[in-house]
């Protein structure tokens, strides 16, 4: 598709976005168009700026140059349009599970209305708690829950606000492998039901390929016509962007050969410091992907 029509049609849209801290460029000319209802997974070597990319969508940080838009409107500071689940610190330690889930509806309502609809709010919270399988634990405090249960509460806490996009920053990173796999299946089930757009940052390639409907690699390992050496001051770019098939809902897909081959390919193209592709040769075959290279990057 052409950039023009992408700009008009996509749900989340990055154009020429840069983020630098002082002189250090972290994100270098990011172009990204995302359709509604996708699960975008973002992987990349550590320190490449995956979380920074997520925080730009969230509004926790603002781009140094360029614009991020959600449904055509420039994203501002954090608000109810975007939900977030972090690896930790998502829950309020002083509130029970139920109150944690109710926090959003309560905060976004004036006092009188909150009092009038308190019964319905409670019911709604229980609906979400049942969905995440924690209804019988509603009176517990976060410190009484296991890591997986905490993340389920955090997901319910975000979903009850019906955000346009759910951002997840390594949400299952601290869980043991078994719990982690259960949480992945659980997230896919929720996605099947709500069809919300999910922006999922992880360092686990297997998780990214298993969960995503589309995978992005953000990497600082590439080359372009700005030359070598430190004066180039390159930041990370999206070096790989492809759609992923999403029919099987079983973890057994992880042992299929094609699954492993894709992971190998990703590992080579994104994570190998010695494998430097030229910016114009990136493997960007998703129908929504586009790239606007500047002249100094693309010699000709």
């Amino acid at each position: 598709m052409q950039t023009e029509s992408l700009r008009a049609n996509s749900f989340l849209f990055f154009e020429d976005v840069y983020k630098s801290y002082g002189a250090k460029v972290v994100l270098d000319d990011i172009d990204l168009a995302v359709a509604r209802g996708e699960i975008i997974t973002v992987v990349g070597p550590s320190g490449c700026g995956k979380s920074t990319l997520l925080r730009l969508v969230l509004g926790q940080e603002l781009p140094s140059r360029g614009q991020v838009t959600l449904e055509g409107k420039s994203v501002g500071l954090p608000d109810v349009t975007r939900g977030i689940v972090y690896q930790k610190y998502s829950l309020y330690p002083h509130l029970t599970v139920l109150d944690n889930v109710l926090m959003g509806p309560r905060l976004s309502m004036p006092l009188l209305k909150r009092w009038r609809v308190r019964g319905e709010l409670r019911e709604e919270a229980f609906t979400y708690l049942r969905k995440v399988g924690l209804a019988e634990h509603y009176r517990k405090y976060p410190h009484e829950l296991s890591g997986g249960m905490r993340q389920r509460v955090a997901i319910a806490q975000s979903l009850i606000m019906k955000p346009k996009i759910l951002l997840m920053d390594e949400p299952f990173g601290a869980l043991d492998p078994g719990t982690r796999e259960n949480m992945q299946l659980f997230l896919l089930e929720l996605w099947e039901e709500f069809k919300m757009t999910i922006f999922f940052v992880t360092h686990d390639l297997e998780e990214a390929v298993f969960l995503g409907t589309r995978i992005l690699i953000l990497s600082q390992y590439y080359t372009d016509d700005r030359g070598d050496g430190s004066h180039a001051n390159r930041g990370a770019k999206i070096v790989f962007d492809t759609a992923l098939p999403k029919e099987a809902q079983s973890t057994s897909v992880k042992s299929v050969a094609a699954f492993g081959a894709l992971i190998q390919q990703i590992r080579r193209e994104g994570f190998d410091p010695d494998y430097l592709q030229h910016a114009r040769d990136f493997n960007l075959n998703h129908p929504y992907s586009f790239q606007t290279l500047r002249r100094e990057e693309n010699g000709i």
């Binding site: 109810v80 905060l107 606000m161």
Partner: peptide, 23 residues
Amino acid sequence: IPREQIVKTLTLGASQISLVYRV
């Protein structure tokens, strides 16, 4: 208090005042 929690609270629709006094 982790920055994450404060940002999270804003995504739950909190105003700055309710962030201070209710969270």
